[in-house]
Design a protein around this nucleic acid. Structure first.
Length: 119
DNA sequence: TGCTTGACCGACG
DNA sequence: ACGTCGGCCAAGC
């Protein structure tokens, strides 16, 4: 009884956020991951927007490498004239990731989990 | 209670 | 390369 009408996902939102943030926390320094990639790794394919929402909700109040999450084009998903944008770019450059033409080379910096390989 | 927005993505034309 | 559209879920008003 009191079934709470689980016509929707039986999984609580906070649980999804936890999974997403856990994946973000695993991104190694000097590596990048796209929102969609994080979603898939967290077991939530096609839910890239949730990744952004989770990070927004978490804010910088965590020790998360949020700056290592970029969009599918390798760019920063913040207005180019915002402080957020500058901070992310600064942090990435500090890790040796340069943004050429506003975007990083994902084919070179993308994080490949389990394939850490030489590490 | 319902519509809109959002740190997005991929497919199409 | 670019604009448009649908998808997917949660928070805000």
């Amino acid at each position: 009884m009191s079934r709470k009408a689980a016509t929707r996902a039986p999984t609580a939102a906070s649980d999804r956020y936890a999974r997403i943030l856990a994946v973000v926390a695993r991104i190694p320094q000097g590596r990048l991951a796209s929102y969609g990639q994080i979603a898939t790794l967290a077991g939530l394919p096609r839910q890239a927007r949730l990744v952004g929402y989770a990070l927004h909700h978490a804010g910088d109040a965590r020790h998360l490498p949020w700056h290592r999450v970029v969009n599918a084009q390798g760019g920063i998903s913040f207005p180019a004239d915002s402080d957020r944008f500058r901070e992310q770019r600064t942090r990435l450059e500090a890790e040796g990731i340069a943004l050429i033409g506003g975007r990083a080379d994902l084919s070179r910096c993308r994080w490949l989990p389990r394939s850490d390989a030489h590490r």
